[in-house]
Design a protein around this nucleic acid. Structure first.
Lengths: 246, 246
DNA sequence: ATTTGCAATCTGTCTAGACATGTTAAGCAC
DNA sequence: GTGCTTAACATGTCTAGACAGATTGCAAAT
């Protein structure tokens, strides 16, 4: 496996930041010094730094240096709080707070996209989809309901077994499918009668609804998800960087 | 003003995409052809394309080309829906859906950060802050309550006048302060009694709570905001790109 | 003592290449 | 026809420079 140099540098710097070698408010070594340290060109160091910046750990300041603005990784920022995050899975986020995640399947079926489903999910009409509804639990308390639609041709062999363990793990590691882009929307909605039953909430309450379309590295959409979270468990973190001159 | 080349290319390509010259599912011209068209190096074209990718408009696919996956800009993706978005302002988002935004000031005062406030907002202790509470309305219907804390030394001259018009406009255009990085968290919470009164909602309902810390180009935090939105109006969009090998 | 100006140092932009690797279609062998 | 190789072309990674522009501290001039 040919390691990618800028990725090595990124991981190395990130580890130093998380470990506290570069505390919040300090500057990283200059790009020139880093390029000497890693025996590479300055552009390669800059690529690694841009990854750190996208993750919200550092901010480059012209004329001064690269400032560390955050030392903890996404997923466990607010201690004790479960976080719905970038592209990490339910299990990953759960383990980050020390809770035991379990899942229970409510539906598992194959459907073909009709006009309505195509509109809702973003898939073309007439595709075969694997439809999956799960209840997510943390330490046996139901906290979310997920409704997944997978493009069956992209995610073959999905069954009630491997779906219960870790969908994310199955998709990325078992199938080797790379999640490249994810378009996501967050809204609030009141629970329907099934939500009330599955999550043990009142019909006048609200749920956080996260819908997302997921694309693989070839640009094919292979998943549509609608996840509904109970209010107390829902935390979403985000770091936005202002683009230069849009 | 020395125009930045990659930014010109970015704007040019974005305009073509929005106008429909490159529909969803099509490929952009190859990087080599674009570098000929704009008389620049391939790296400069790639920088422009990476901006488009960060915005969620395109996805690069090795060996094939740059695929267009979205043709509309953030802020008006779901037609008729107000969206809380990246780093755009309340007024911008409102205009995008044709509603008239107004604001009413509830509080306007200066405070010094005590221990509790420092913990909450992320500012150091003993700083002078401008504390501002606003009700946001769309077509005269109250939809959100904003609580802002500004670092007074960074945002001097803020008064009840210019705060009512457009905070964002005042900060970026009048003061010349550049918003560089924004750390944001979304949660759900039940309204307090003042929220109920200001927003005309029931105390058993829920609000979407967006808290954010905003940093300028020198890495100084100059704002902390807690915005509470009524459920029906809250839409948040996001495009996440999977980093390579974290 | 204060201000001015300069030089060192830093990130930002850009070039003109190189080679690696994934995709696709044409052409060749069977 | 079917299947394989190959060549053309696409993006991904990386180099070794160049100059621009912001920041800061120090030295010189006032």
């Amino acid at each position: 496996m040919a390691r990618i140099l800028y990725s090595e540098i990124y991981r190395s710097l990130r580890e130093r930041i998380v470990e506290g070698k570069h505390p919040v408010g300090s500057l990283l070594p200059s790009e020139q010094n880093l390029s000497k340290e890693f025996s590479c060109s300055r552009m390669t160091v800059r690529k690694a730094i841009s990854l750190l910046a996208n993750e919200g750990l550092v901010q480059s300041i012209k004329g001064k240096g690269v400032l560390v603005i955050e030392t903890s990784l996404a997923g466990a920022r607010k201690e004790g709080a479960f976080t719905v995050n970038d592209l990490s899975s339910f299990s990953e986020s759960a383990h980050a707070i020390g809770a035991i995640p379990t899942s229970k399947i409510v539906y598992f079926e194959h459907v073909s996209t009709n006009k309505y489903l195509a509109q809702l999910t973003g898939f073309p009409e007439g595709e075969d989809l694997t439809h999956l509804k799960l209840v997510r639990m943390l330490d046996d308390k139901p906290v979310a309901v997920d409704r997944h639609y997978f493009l069956t041709s992209s995610v073959p062999g999905l069954n009630e077994q491997n779906a219960t363990l870790s969908l994310f793990h199955y998709i990325e590691d078992e199938l080797g499918l790379t999640i490249a882009v994810s378009k996501r929307t967050i809204t609030l909605a009141q629970p329907d009668t099934e939500d009330c039953r599955l999550l043990d909430v009142d019909s006048s309450s609200y749920l956080a609804v996260v819908t997302s379309q997921t694309f693989d590295s070839t640009g094919t959409q292979f998943e549509y998800v609608e996840a509904r979270y109970i209010p107390s468990i829902f935390h979403f973190h985000d770091t936005a960087t202002r683009t230069p001159l849009p």
